[in-house]
Design a protein around this nucleic acid. Structure first.
Lengths: 196, 196
DNA sequence: TGGTTGTTGAACACGGTGCTCATTTTCGAT
DNA sequence: ATCGAAAATGAGCACCGTGTTCAACAACCA
């Protein structure tokens, strides 16, 4: 059952549409992009668009899905708590650096509630798993675990957004350090201890 | 120059529209609301809507503006650093509690990038002012001040959103404590000291 | 009361959407 | 190189939400 490679034309069309969407997002932001804009920029027939995607949201989602897969292949992202507390952070920043234009397109212009939500959901899963391992199951925390998760995710996204908005003014290792400097003290103070 | 009170009909219409928008947002989220929905729910002529606002965004903005004014009157929000580090937090949570339905409408359904941005901008101003006072002007921080600001704002919004999503499962003082427990250690560790 | 101001609903042009279908182009396997 | 299958095309269509106009009507307030 070889993973059937789609027709060359199909790949071409899909890529053209993906790229077109990204380019236009960089100038207008997702919300203002129109299907017409996309097919014009991509030099693709309007009906062709609808042969592949039901609407622009699905096009965006498929693009993000690819990015997500690429991220999953990124060294170290999925190592869990073994890499130390909040170990996902550095690889994640590196992945952002490696796909600068793409991430930029997703963030500019307040970048759609949709993008925010997708990014958030994925991160939330990672963080929840990681913290669940570290915290003693029945131990009463001064702050609900879910709150710690939300707090951590929001902080990370804050740093990432700043980094992108400023056009990556420092190396990935540096933002990562800032993120940890700010976030970890608050977490440790709750009695959650990293294994190192 | 007495602040000319608008015609009674005008007040009536504006309130009807405001309320209608809020109600519909509670069920559909801002993005899916249509001008038609609003005027139907409000029992107001379509052309009347456009006599007052240019589009639904302006209606939303005017509503938020009112909320902002109400917030400014809230005891303690604008006291600056005199109330201790992050002193705006508790009064803010209280204001949320006092205007539960309204805040809820703004947050449900991933609540529009626009709302997020407006809330963020306002908070950012508060936090920036507060921190600017506390930090020695020329002192080199391990983290740019602007990053600390973004971090603080995001953390606060994370807590506030969680609190609203969970339908206020604890008193304002409690979320406030959580917020401080999580956020302040990271800030203090940078060498920024509260005056107390 | 009367003059002013606000409200109404019908009508309109516009632009984006999602879909259909007959025709043409391109692919890839033989 | 050929040929059948699959994909791309673009014109056309119905639909919906927008934002505007206007003449008739209703409510306000002095």
């Amino acid at each position: 059952m070889a993973a059937k490679v789609p027709d060359r034309r199909v790949r071409r069309t899909r890529n053209l549409l993906q790229d077109a969407l990204m380019e236009i997002m960089l100038t207008k932001g997702y919300d203002d992009v129109t299907v017409q804009d996309i097919v014009d920029r991509a030099n693709v027939g309007r009906s062709t668009f609808y042969a592949h995607f039901t609407d622009k949201q699905q096009l965006l989602t498929s693009g993000i899905e690819q990015l997500r897969e690429s991220l999953a292949r990124q060294e170290g992202v999925l190592e869990g708590p073994s890499a130390g507390l909040l170990g996902f952070s550095l690889p994640m920043f590196q992945h952002v650096a490696d796909n600068y234009r793409l991430y930029r397109a997703l963030v500019v212009k307040g970048g759609s509630a949709l993008v925010e939500e997708l990014a958030r959901d994925m991160l939330t899963g990672l963080v929840r798993d990681e913290l669940a391992v570290l915290v003693p199951p029945g131990a009463p925390l001064p702050v609900p675990l879910e709150v710690v998760v939300q707090y951590t995710v929001s902080s990370f996204l804050a740093l990432q957004t700043w980094w992108l908005d400023q056009k990556m003014p420092c190396p990935a290792g540096e933002v990562d350090r800032m993120f940890r400097d700010l976030t970890i003290p608050g977490i440790m103070a709750l009695g959650i201890a990293p294994q190192s």
